[in-house]
Design a protein around this nucleic acid. Structure first.
Lengths: 340, 340
DNA sequence: ACAAAATATGCAAACGTTTGCATTTATGTT
DNA sequence: AACATAAATGCAAACGTTTGCATATTTTGT
């Protein structure tokens, strides 16, 4: 294990002071040095295989050029594209991403904030934030944070989210136009922004159309998972067996709903129409083809990172508090007119 | 922005030397201090909201307690579970993971190795390694590396891979037992270990059974993607239109093959049987249900990380050079006896 | 040719820790 | 009560950089 080459070694080899080497190696500071010596030092450094030590740099400058990326679970197919979006701007800008999975546990989220701060990250992208998230709020005074895909409502933390409301409105439209009168809602977890926002949008949209919302026709799933979706769907159908359509808060829930429907001997879309949200990968290949709301996952990550970089460069620069990304409906085979 | 509390501040407040604080805060070193002062310092530190600076620690100890995780693309559904497996052991052990995506570009892989070293990672999990990978080999003398899911053949770099050979053998068995005589192979990229290993296994397995391998019945896809799978399948079927089964090197390729088959007006499994590899999420829901080889993605990541930790703790400790994880066949609807 | 201004380089402190060694303080032992 | 020993703490250097300031060297204007 040969010792690493440092700036000091290069200085000795070139017979110059370490500060001179430091300057020569920096694009900005090298302007104060003579062309000749800069060239000489640089080639010598290269020749010696010098590799800058960013840990030392970080200590000296108090900037580690790294950011924490907090997500619930990278195994959940909605997050990888967001992460890629984040990296697509962070990496070229010279930032490294430290990725952590909270498994939606607020306790873990808190711990990770601590750890990330100990490691001196310059900022944090939080895609695991809950709607009411005291942890995120309290840390937001310590370093720049941007939330992605979700938001901490009323926290003042910059957020990049999808047009959840608009997506749901359009979906209700679509269902109503197809002739549905008895529509249920399989809602997301009520501690998550997306769960709340979509449910509110559902209710107000139904109301705006003068549609009846029967009691028991809105049930929240415990988690955004297929089993939770199946379970909640069964509850809904137990209470309101004559619903002709169920608008689900996301695709995985809808897949679970599909399971529940099949297990009851019903068919989609013949007996009940179903819609999702997100348009996750491979969804198009699952019969009957889920009609869903397509979101710009990659861009949500990308823009969140862009905003974060702005704040990291200049803490006080004003940035948009909420950025809403457009969504679009993609129609497949899971919706048709009610039988009647 | 209030200045961070350092060990020095705690020392001043408690009227003790900074080295004493350092010792008091360390579980091991605190044994050389009096119970009383340790207690006092710790509570004071807590009270002041002291947060250790790991950057400084890293500089001093030359250990950053972080590892680089290199993968081709987190958006490829096979990798998230591997990453989770890696984190499942790294995180509890106190390591942070820096995640990078190479997009299968060797040039980027090389850059990332550089960057990760500059950042002083203590080790690297490389799931983007190519079969012949000079970059990984050369860096392996600088720091511990373990490859996951793939291996750099003959490099001596510890690897955790699946039983690719065994999986393919079983699959050929299954196809032959179903009565197939004309079997093609949609192979993976020939610069990847999995592509090569599975193809070799296919050939030797067919040979071992005395099955004929017609020319043109083995084609390598350029990438593990659906479009590449579709394209390669069309080539195969152009040359050998009377194949009754195609064994695909992975699931995404098989999905692409499905597309090709449908676009030719054929059906799976009636006209041609198809098999995959990996058993990616949601695969079970895509008709006709792909018969595939299930791999232990999570455990591949987990074990790779365990091996890495061993090597990081004690560079010279001997570790298994190749660890092969068991696979299993999961039968679904994409295989049936040939029509005759 | 000389002071003044500009250019190029060196000096040393600082970033927040840990740790080998020196020193002080407490504890026994006789 | 004195001394040896053990226990507890302090000292200072080191990790690899950057950077404000001081110094030395060159260039410029007259």
């Amino acid at each position: 294990m040969k010792k690493n080459i440092t700036i000091k070694d290069v200085a000795r080899e070139t017979g110059v002071h370490v500060s001179t080497v430091s300057r020569a190696l920096s694009t900005e500071a090298s302007s104060s040095l003579s062309k000749k010596v800069v060239e000489q030092i640089r080639s010598k450094a290269m020749e010696m295989g010098y590799r800058p030590n960013r840990v030392a740099l970080g200590l000296r400058t108090k900037k580690t050029m790294s950011v924490g990326v907090i997500i619930p679970d990278i195994g959940n197919t909605i997050f990888p594209p967001i992460v890629r979006g984040v990296e697509s701007v962070l990496e070229p800008a010279g930032y490294a991403s430290i990725l952590v999975n909270t498994d939606s546990d607020p306790e873990r989220e808190k711990q990770f904030f601590q750890v990330l701060l100990e490691r001196g990250v310059d900022g944090i992208i939080d895609a695991a934030v809950t709607s009411n998230d005291p942890t995120a709020v309290s840390f937001s005074s310590e370093l720049p944070i941007v939330t992605a895909n979700r938001m901490a409502v009323g926290s003042g933390i910059p957020a990049v989210v999808n047009d959840d409301k608009g997506g749901i409105y359009s979906m209700v439209d679509l269902l109503v136009n197809a002739g549905h009168k008895k529509i249920g809602h399989l809602a997301g977890p009520s501690h998550l922004y997306t769960g709340i926002a979509r449910q509110e949008a559902f209710s107000s949209s139904m109301q705006a159309r003068g549609m009846e919302i029967r009691k028991g026709s809105i049930i929240s799933a415990d988690a955004y998972s297929e089993p939770a979706g199946k379970e909640a769907t069964n509850k809904i159908l137990d209470i309101c067996p004559n619903l002709t359509a169920i608008l689900c808060a996301n695709d995985r829930l809808a897949i679970g709903a599909l399971d529940a429907i099949h297990s009851r001997g019903l068919k989609c879309p013949e007996d009940v129409s179903l819609t999702g949200f997100n348009d996750i990968p491979l969804l198009d290949r699952i019969p009957p083809g889920l009609t869903t709301v397509k979101i710009l996952q990659f861009d949500v990550g990308r823009i969140a990172a862009e905003i974060l970089i702005k704040k990291m460069k200049e803490k006080s620069v004003p940035v948009p508090e909420t950025t809403i990304m457009p969504v679009s409906i993609v129609e497949r085979g899971s919706v048709q007119a009610p039988k009647e």
